[in-house]
Nucleic acid binder design. Structure first.
Lengths: 133, 133
DNA sequence: GTAAACCCTGGTGTGGACTCTAGGGCAAGT
DNA sequence: ACTTGCCCTAGAGTCCACACCAGGGTTTAC
């Protein structure tokens, strides 16, 4: 599949795909005889993966790291797997953060008219056990 | 409380606080006779609120919008409340997205050695019902 | 009363993640 | 054969969210 097709399929711009490749967020895409990029199955997997994790808020750094491990050979399977596990954990942490904020919002919504509130009360609502604001 | 105190309390830099104020992400902070910012109870609430929502990944745009509604008077209480509700909904959507990605990662982790996978299979794991992508 | 440690504004700098442009090659239809 | 519409690279431009000055006033500690 050519770059246009991939761009459409995943709703990205061609420029973004080229950019990702340049910073090694994607592996080097094979070229046809005219030098055009020809995305294979594996490359589409990467695009899908990268896009999902970017949307979920993963840093590009972490992803580059991961791609590098793949690029550098099949050696360190354990390392790669544990990176996946780490990434999952980071996402779970993020979910946790957001859910705290949801609680905080819910509290504000429920007490919307109550103008005596201050953020100390709200902090309470936001997080009962965590002492660092 | 002066700017240094607020910065320390919320683990932000003075620059960030001034920046937020400039782009109207915070209301105009009252000044003392020397022109120094003097943060009140309400302002601390804002800082807390903004910081939490930023950390949760809310766009600055959406937050500026919200602050504006407050700034423009006490009129539209309903509008303000519904904005809170909207923001909560956005966060819930985000949680949903991330959880999809977590599922996807879990799938990859579980099938780590299985090289016959392609992103079509993974798409299945990623999201059973959503047909886009 | 003076040095250190704050505060202010206005402006410039920075890093990240694209986005666009220029200049040129290839492909497909007419 | 020629127009249209892709593709390429290299490089410049943009926007965001700060971070970092410079130049100057103020407050606090000695």
């Amino acid at each position: 599949m050519n770059i246009e097709g991939v761009a459409k399929k995943f709703d990205l711009t061609r420029d973004t795909l080229r950019y990702w490749e340049r910073i090694e967020l994607l592996p080097a895409i094979p070229r046809n005889q005219s030098g055009y990029r020809e995305y294979g199955e594996r490359d589409l997997n990467w695009v899908f993966y990268i896009k999902a994790l970017r949307k979920a808020g993963m840093s590009i750094e972490a992803l580059v790291e991961f791609v590098k491990l793949y690029r550098d050979g099949n050696q360190n399977i354990a390392a790669r797997k544990s990176l996946l596990v780490d990434q999952r954990q980071e996402l779970l942490n993020k979910v946790n953060d957001i859910q705290k904020t949801v609680k905080y919002l819910s509290f504000k919504i429920d007490h919307f008219e109550d103008h005596t509130l201050n953020y100390e009360n709200e902090k309470l609502a936001y997080d009962q056990e965590d002492d660092q604001i």
